[in-house]
Design a protein around this nucleic acid. Sequence first.
DNA 1: GATCCATTTCTATAATTCCAAAAACATGGA
DNA 2: TCCATGTTTTTGGAATTATAGAAATGGATC
Lengths: 112, 112
Amino acid sequence: MDPISAVRALAALAQESRLAIYRLLVQAGPAGLVAGQLGEALGIPAATLSFHLKTLAHSGLVSHRQEGRYARYSADFTAMHALIDYLSANCCGADRSVCLPCEPSIVKEIPA
Amino acid sequence: MDPISAVRALAALAQESRLAIYRLLVQAGPAGLVAGQLGEALGIPAATLSFHLKTLAHSGLVSHRQEGRYARYSADFTAMHALIDYLSANCCGADRSVCLPCEPSIVKEIPA
DNA sequence: GATCCATTTCTATAATTCCAAAAACATGGA
DNA sequence: TCCATGTTTTTGGAATTATAGAAATGGATC
């Protein structure tokens, strides 16, 4: 991932409505949601919603597919992981003995 | 984490200079770096750097401590993990059988 | 062709970004 | 103590960029 893509992805999420949209799509899973469902769930006018969805899709964090007259959106998990990897690249100079906090999920979730 | 804090953290990273600063601090680990070091490494004027560091510190992603006349900054890993957890909350409706991509690091790094 | 869903245009408002200059603050000698 | 020096922050103001939503447009379905 390059810095420009990372900034674009972060900027896409750095807005109240878009963050709410993204989180809803994360919860919806691979199936995603149709634009109308998002608009109703969040109470966002169609024009505004479309503007935000375009920003999210352009960032790569959200995928778009057309289903007849419906526009379906879903979260792209691969893109999010690429972003997180970029943010934590070379964490603590890659010295894992110093840097336990980097991957707490491993520490927490590996069965003993 | 609440939406306002999340937006603030994401907005803090959604700027080229601040993202570069943050990544440098991540690499520097808990020891962090002094403002002057950051300015020299990235070629950012002092006034601009101070403005960006203030934004990062206010977001909680970066910690600040005064050491005599030096200002030392370091990445707050706990804050970053809270942000990531917020972004992936209830991923795929918490149905892990559907949602492997949510924690690929576990899949990758658990010793067989 | 009427209806429904979504997107594009458009305009006004608001927020961000940059950095030079000045100010604030700490330190270590005259 | 007072001053010179080095580090960082604040101030101020111009240019850029983002935002919201009404109105108009574009496609798909029946």
